[in-house]
C-alpha cells in the first residue's frame, strides 16, 4: 500500500514547464467556493446588493455620454450614444475588473497563501469567474436596452455575430487573467507596479475604442495611418466585434481578431509560467 501512495517531492527548483496544471482539477471545488465567497461577501450588508453591479457601468456610461457624446460631440456611428458606450463599458468593465483584482493576487491574499498550500492559480481563476456573475447582470441589463433600441428603429441592428459572445468573453477572461498574473508575479518584487495598474488600465482604455468610435477618427479607421498599430491592441478587435454583434455598427477585421487570439494565448502562457515560478517562494519576499 505504501508504494501506491502518491509521492510529493519538494525541491528547490523546478523546470520552466513544470506547471502542475492537473492539480487544479483536484481543487475545482475550492475554485467554486472562492467564487461563492467573493460574491456573497461583496454584497452582504449592502442595501442594493447585486444592483451595484449595474449601477457602476450605468454611471460610467452616463458620464461618457455626457462628456464625449454631448460636450465633446464625438459621433457614435449613427446609434444612440447611451447604447454605444454601454456595450463597450460592459465588456471593458469585465476586463479591467479582472485585471486589477488578479494583479494583486499575491499581496491581497498573503494571509491565506502564507499559511496553507493549494495551487496558487486557484485564486486568480476564481477571481475571473466571480467577475462573470457581475458581467451576467450587466449583460442582461444591456440586452434590455439593445432590444428597446432595436425595436424603436434607432439604428441598432443586432445580428448573428451575437453567437460569438461566449468566445469573446472567454478570450477577455484569458487575456485579463494573463496580464493580471504577470503583474501579480512582478509585484512580489516591485511594488511600484501596483501603483501603475490603475493608471495603466486607464491608459489602455483610451487606446481601446471604449469611449469613442474608432471608425470616425481618420487615423484609426481602416486604411488610416495608425490602423495597423491601433489594431494590435488585443482588446480592440474584441470590443469591435462585440459592438458589431449587438449594434450592427463598425466592422470586424478577422485578421486582427486572429492576432488578438495569438497575443492572448502568448500572454496567458507567459503569465502562467511566471506565476508558477513566483508562487513557490513569494512568501519570502512579499
Amino acid at each position: 500500500m505504501d508504494e501506491n501512495r502518491p509521492v510529493t517531492v519538494i525541491k528547490p527548483h523546478t523546470g520552466w514547464l513544470d506547471l502542475h496544471l492537473g492539480e487544479l482539477l483536484h481543487y475545482k471545488d475550492l475554485i467554486f467556493l472562492f467564487v461563492k465567497r467573493n460574491f456573497v461577501s461583496l454584497y452582504k450588508q449592502t442595501v442594493l446588493g447585486p444592483a451595484w453591479a449595474v449601477i457602476q457601468p450605468l454611471l460610467t456610461t452616463v458620464v461618457f455620454s455626457l462628456v464625449f457624446g454631448n460636450i465633446a460631440g464625438l459621433a457614435a456611428d449613427g446609434v444612440p450614444t447611451f447604447i454605444f458606450y454601454l456595450t463597450a463599458n460592459v465588456m471593458w468593465g469585465y476586463f479591467s475588473g479582472c485585471l486589477t483584482t488578479t494583479s494583486s493576487t499575491f499581496i491581497a491574499n498573503s494571509g491565506i497563501l502564507g499559511k496553507v498550500y493549494f495551487p496558487r492559480l486557484v485564486m486568480p481563476i476564481s477571481t475571473v469567474l466571480s467577475k462573470l456573475i457581475d458581467f451576467a447582470i450587466q449583460y442582461a441589463f444591456m440586452i434590455i436596452f439593445v432590444i428597446y433600441f432595436a425595436l424603436t428603429n434607432s439604428g441598432v441592428h443586432p445580428n448573428w455575430y451575437m453567437l460569438m459572445t461566449p468566445v469573446l468573453l472567454l478570450q477577455l477572461a484569458m487575456l485579463s487573467l494573463g496580464v493580471g498574473i504577470i503583474i501579480s508575479a512582478a509585484t512580489t518584487k516591485y511594488r511600484d507596479l501596483r501603483m501603475l495598474v490603475s493608471f495603466g488600465v486607464q491608459l489602455w482604455m483610451y487606446a481601446t475604442p471604449v469611449a469613442y468610435d474608432m471608425f470616425s477618427i481618420a487615423g484609426f479607421a481602416p486604411g488610416g495611418k495608425y490602423y495597423h498599430i491601433y489594431m494590435c491592441n488585443p482588446v480592440t478587435p474584441i470590443i469591435n466585434m462585440f459592438r458589431y454583434a449587438y449594434l450592427g455598427i463598425g466592422g470586424v477585421d478577422w485578421f486582427y481578431y486572429g492576432i488578438s487570439w495569438v497575443v492572448t494565448l502568448v500572454i496567458l502562457f507567459i503569465g502562467v509560467i511566471m506565476f508558477t515560478r513566483v508562487e513557490r517562494t513569494f512568501m519570502d519576499t512579499v
Partner: peptide, 28 residues
C-alpha cells in the same frame, strides 16, 4: 517547507500522502 508554503533553498522533501497543514487555525 513541508506544507509547501515556500520552497527550500537546497535539499529535497518526499511526502507519501496528503498533507493537512494547520499553521494557523481557520485559514480563509
Amino acid at each position: 517547507l513541508i506544507s509547501r508554503v515556500t520552497a527550500p533553498s537546497a535539499g529535497e522533501i518526499r511526502l507519501r500522502g496528503r498533507v493537512a497543514s494547520m499553521l494557523e487555525v481557520g485559514t480563509g
